[in-house]
Amino acid sequence: MALATIDAAAKRGVSAVQEYALLSSRAVSDIFRRPFYTSDVFMQADIIGVGSLPIVILTGFFLGGVLALQSASTLNQFGAEAFTGQLVSFSMIKEIGPVVTALMVSGRNASGMASELGSMIVTEQIDAMRALGTDPLKKLVMPRILATVVMLFFLVILSDAVGILGGGFVSVSMLGQDATQYFNTSYQSLEFPDILQGLVKPIFFGFIIATIGCFYGMKTRGGTQGVGRSTTQAVVWSSILIIVTDFMISRTLIGIFGR
C-alpha cells in the first residue's frame, strides 16, 4: 500500500515536471511565432515591472541600510570600517539584490499569475479562448514570461542601486563615515564577474517566476479552493527554485571566473 502511494506520487511528480517543461518550451517558442501580442507584453510589463517598483525600492533601500549597519559593526572589530561600501555593493549586486527582488516579485506576481489563470481555467475562459481560435499559451503565458524576464532585470539593477544608496545613507548619517570613501570603495572594488553574476541571475529568476506562476495557474483543478492551492504552490515553488538556482549560478560563475 505504502509502495503504491510512493509510486503514484513519483509518477505525479515526473508528470508535473514533464508538463512544466512542455509549457515552458512551447511558451518560449511562441515568442518567435506570429501573431505576437505586443500590447499584452506591454500590459504585463506595466503590471509586473511598474507595479513592483514601490516594494522593490523600499526593500532595496532598507536591505542596503541594514547591510551597512551589520557589516560596519563587524568590520569595526578589525579596524576595517572603511570597507563598508565594498561589502554592501558586493552583497547587493551579487546576492541580496537579485534574490530578494526576485522573491518579492515572486510573492506579488507568481501568485497573481496563478490566481488569474486559475480563475480563468475554472470558469472555462481558457477553453473559451481556445474555442475562439486563440492559443492561451501565446496570448497569456508568453507575454508574462517575456515581461517578467525583462522587467525583473531592470528591477534588480534598480534594487542594487537603491540598496547601495541606502547603505550610503546609513554609513554617512548614522555611522559617521565619509560619503566619498563609501561610494569610491563601493564602485572601485567591483569587477566584471561581479556585475555579470548580478545580471545573469534575474534572467533565470524572472523565467522561473513567470513559468511557475503560469504553470500552476494553467493546471488548476477544483474550483475556488483549487485556485487558492495553485496560488500557494506557485509562490512556494518559485521561491524554492529561485534559491536553488541562485546557488547553482553562483557556483558555476565562481567556478568560471574565480570570484
Partner: peptide, 9 residues
Amino acid sequence: TVFQEGALF
C-alpha cells in the same frame, strides 16, 4: 461555441 455558463472574459 456557447459554453455552459457562458464563459465570458
